[in-house]
């Protein structure tokens, strides 16, 4: 089994930086997208195992990215975790409706996040 590949999508450089550190340390391959458009492009090229997806982004928002991902049968195995500052029940529901596997509000605990990442990838 090859090393799982994870795509980090966020427009906040510091968040991307910390997430990248965490993922690499856990031994995953990491891809980075700074906005929705980049994310969609990366996803169409690479069959990532997991996407950590921000919602609020300058161009295409996270929900749209997730929905488009779910429409691609070739990416059915890709897991999606939303990481968002939008934490209201309606936002969370919207995330799951878009096809997310998990929705974690910011700010999050890194330990919990890694736990969930491992769980999602382990189930594969």
């Amino acid at each position: 089994m090859s090393t799982p590949a994870i795509l980090l999508v966020d427009d906040e450089p510091t968040i991307v930086m910390s997430l990248e550190f965490l993922m690499r340390k856990s031994g995953y391959q990491v891809g980075i997208a700074r906005n929705g458009t980049e994310a969609l492009a990366a996803l169409s090229q690479t069959p990532y195992d997991l996407v950590l997806l921000d919602v609020m982004m300058p161009d295409v928002d996270g929900y749209q990215v997730c929905r488009q991902l779910r429409q691609n049968p070739a990416r059915a195995a890709t897991k999606v975790i939303f990481l968002s500052a939008k934490s209201q029940p309606a936002d969370v529901q919207k995330g799951y409706d878009a096809g997310a596997d998990l929705y974690i509000p910011k700010p999050f605990s890194t330990r919990q996040l890694m736990q969930k990442v491992r769980e999602l990838l382990g189930n594969e």
Binding site: E12, T14, I15, L19, A85, K106, P107, F108, S109, T110
Partner: peptide, 8 residues
Amino acid sequence: TPLTSIRA
């Protein structure tokens, strides 16, 4: 947003 970075 900054809180997330700080905490992480």
